[in-house]
Design a protein around this nucleic acid. Sequence first.
DNA 1: TAGATTGTTAATCGATTAACAATC
DNA 2: TAGATTGTTAATCGATTAACAATC
Lengths: 215, 215
Amino acid sequence: MDEKRVSVAVIKRLPRYYRFLGDLLDNNINRISSKELSKKMNITASQIRQDLNNFGCFGLQGYGYNVPNLYKEIQKILGLEEEHNMILVGVGNIGRALAQYKSFEKRGFRFVGVFDKNPDLIGKELGNNKIRDINDLSKFLVDTEVNIAVIAVPRNSASKIVEILAINGVKGIWNFSNAELDIPKSMFCENVYLTDSLMTLTYRLHEDEILKKYS
Amino acid sequence: MDEKRVSVAVIKRLPRYYRFLGDLLDNNINRISSKELSKKMNITASQIRQDLNNFGCFGLQGYGYNVPNLYKEIQKILGLEEEHNMILVGVGNIGRALAQYKSFEKRGFRFVGVFDKNPDLIGKELGNNKIRDINDLSKFLVDTEVNIAVIAVPRNSASKIVEILAINGVKGIWNFSNAELDIPKSMFCENVYLTDSLMTLTYRLHEDEILKKYS
DNA sequence: TAGATTGTTAATCGATTAACAATC
DNA sequence: TAGATTGTTAATCGATTAACAATC
């Protein structure tokens, strides 16, 4: 019944393919072989072909791949042809930045609501939205279809919000809080742990020293 | 000569261990076995022990791990005991959010300089910093030790900045631009591709549909 | 047709998990 | 000492790479 799942590693590479193909398009390159692309992307041609063949046969033997076509296919695979209604929960530094990020609109991501609990913020403008009271979130979700909730609240407020989202059928969470959210199986959560990312950088900066010490 | 490198997978898990151990500390839990921790973190106990033993023997047979001690060790491994001087390049939405992010200070990350090319912004305050002219970056780096540069400029301005950083001996780059930076071997770059992250989420939201289609 | 490059199967490599002796 | 749990070696699993027949 279940299709065999595509591995996380593959899925994480898809947006990168999409970016490189976009660049090729911008440069009016119409055709590319896995070998050429592999050189540009610094991965093996085998991996490219294997990755793509999880989803279909997009190439042509003896020719390679048609760039506009492959670009379009990956776009479809990534779900970028659909419109995505998003809400923002938590108008802090990060939340504010995301709400004002211009490129989202272009790609069909639209903030349809913005929420915070701070009375000083409620009613103020943010991007195209008036900031709403977080207490009205549940009510709002009844009337408006929302695909993705961007969570940018402090660590300990996050789980309560997930509950509300779950009850109201929001399927996707883009989590910028530092919390490890407990998500029902019907939902999907993509975490952006900024401090984790920064820490892996500081690790690398003194890796040699550390490895010498513990060896 | 070279120590055997620790795999990326392990390094990416370290900050997560650090977070969980921090929680345990907050709850005054002093001792934990790999088995208990594995249950909390939803990974295998084997993996925890394997991961940690890349860096040393932090446990005690028959007892488990001392939480404060292990926390401290991971802190050291991640390089969090050192102070980190950062600069921000690019005062857009994301840059501004990062510069104002409070938690950095607490953990020893300090913005010592903030740069942009926009004359309207130069001279204005951002956090504890006056926004400087990007043209003064090179000069600034001669006088000030900088460990990490946060790059939050548009895609096509990024590579020029990397050049300047490289010449002036900045070792770490935390890249928020959409560009794939070409980095000299002496430097380390941690990328935060926000749109990539969002795309993997939209992929998941319609994965079943896509797999059915291509199966 | 000859040359190129795919899609796909098979081989290799590395990471995760299991098992267990060492030892607190 | 008996029980628990580590550190570490061995087995398994999955992902990456290589090879090649199919085919444009």
